[in-house]
Design a protein around this nucleic acid. Sequence first.
DNA 1: TCAAATAAAATCGCTTGCAATTATATAGTG
DNA 2: CACTATATAATTGCAAGCGATTTTATTTGA
Lengths: 150, 150
Amino acid sequence: MDIKDNRVIPVLNDQLCFAVYSLSLAISKVYRPLLKQLDLTYPQYLVMLVLWEGDQLSVSEIGEKLFLDSATLTPLLKRLEVSGLLSRERSSRDERQVIICLTTAGKQLRAQAGQVMETMLCAMGCSIEEVQGLRDRLNGLRNHLVMNLD
Amino acid sequence: MDIKDNRVIPVLNDQLCFAVYSLSLAISKVYRPLLKQLDLTYPQYLVMLVLWEGDQLSVSEIGEKLFLDSATLTPLLKRLEVSGLLSRERSSRDERQVIICLTTAGKQLRAQAGQVMETMLCAMGCSIEEVQGLRDRLNGLRNHLVMNLD
DNA sequence: TCAAATAAAATCGCTTGCAATTATATAGTG
DNA sequence: CACTATATAATTGCAAGCGATTTTATTTGA
């Protein structure tokens, strides 16, 4: 590879974007059978992780944490409501907001999440340092991109 | 954060998975307006990148390069066929295979892809070394996960 | 006060992504 | 040859994702 060729750099960057894309798909493919035992998809699992940290959040508060908007979250939350894991109720203080609360079943599901995380960690098979380093780099990159989206 | 707490490691790994997920979404959000000028989505762009390297590929050959299967590719390729960028024809040597060839319009579109890559590189804003390092690490992780999927 | 601006969620239409299944063609085996 | 096994695409059904728009509620400000 001739680094002096200016075309190399854009192509390299393209390869990085593809690496992120294909890794993301591979990760959900590993999560799928694990989460099937909890009757969750990966995005649903992410919502549950947020709510286990603390519920009574509005749709947009969840969206801020996960970088998703109501067009994605509303149908997803409705499915979790049908599953009996959470409730969706209009705030009486501000009728525009819909407040999400965990049900007892939703809170209890947390106990099974540990096993999923353990298995996933094992599947990834890399050191703490590598995980920390990668996480920070990727979050930095994402924050940089999200910042410039407006 | 207490690194002695064993729960920290699985959670860290979970954070890495989310970092990959959210970065992947952020990347497509940056690509979207750029690729709209070429009337392509990001997965369609990936298929075109593969074909620009060399066409006359079967659906599964494209799938191997992109880690996608026919359930995803067949409808996507049909849309690109309707757009006039490629042709889908059964191989006469093996009637099971569908061979994908670029049309003249499909080949010509390549000229506009350079601009997309340049703009994207600028949006990412990181050094060659960082791009190379990240790409290799993420590909390594993906290959490790894909290998253990059977 | 009250119309215009803003904010939150929902809805619509479209494109992935994929597990599971089906249809068809080829390869292999007796 | 026939007959099973395998390979390749296509199809089906569902769940994301999201741009664009709509609906309803709140805020602003003249």
